[in-house]
């Protein structure tokens, strides 16, 4: 029912590295496509640190944003997936993406940290965005395979 192709990401040189340029902004921008983001959006680090979270500052459309950068958990990378357009250079539909039921996604860029921006409040450990990263620790504890030895240990330890 579809694929996600990560293979390009195994070669450092064949894929763009967007580390430091991935920003979650606190508003909906009704546009998809290229824009001169780096020309107008210039984050600065500050001396302010709250609860271990280092605050950064930037402005967007005259509004002050306060943000924080999160490193991705070890063993994980960030990927920007792109869905190939339905038409190739000759204007023919490609077989792969011709059906909506079988989307073909491909890793187009990679990153190892991302910055999220708040509008009204200082970044803190209570921010939902930061807390969503708890999932990686929970998933590790919940889904790491159980060995037969662990089973024996648990059932004996309890009785």
């Amino acid at each position: 029912m579809g694929t996600i192709d990560f293979r390009a990401a195994s070669d450092e040189n064949s894929i763009a590295d967007l580390s430091g340029q991935v920003h979650q902004v606190p508003c909906c921008i009704r546009f998809d496509g290229s824009a001169e983001v780096s020309h107008y959006f210039k984050p600065k680090s500050t001396e302010v640190e709250i609860d271990g979270v280092r605050m950064e500052e930037a402005h967007f459309r005259g509004r002050r944003l306060q943000g924080a950068t999160i490193s991705l958990p070890s063993g994980y990378s960030g990927f920007v997936l792109g869905q190939a357009s339905n038409q190739n250079a000759n204007g023919k539909r490609k077989a792969c993406s011709s059906t909506e039921e079988n989307p073909c996604w491909e890793a187009k860029a990679k990153f190892d940290k991302m910055t999220y921006w708040n509008h009204d409040n200082l970044p803190s450990k209570d921010d939902t965005f930061l807390r969503s990263f708890h999932w990686f620790s929970i998933a590790e504890a919940l889904h790491k395979p159980v060995k037969v030895e662990d089973l024996v240990a648990v059932s004996h330890g309890e009785k």
Binding site: E36, V37, S38
Partner: peptide
């Protein structure tokens, strides 16, 4: 509410 800046690209 949220969108992404991905390098010089905007994702709604």
């Amino acid at each position: 509410y949220g969108s992404w800046f991905l390098g010089d690209y905007i994702s709604q």
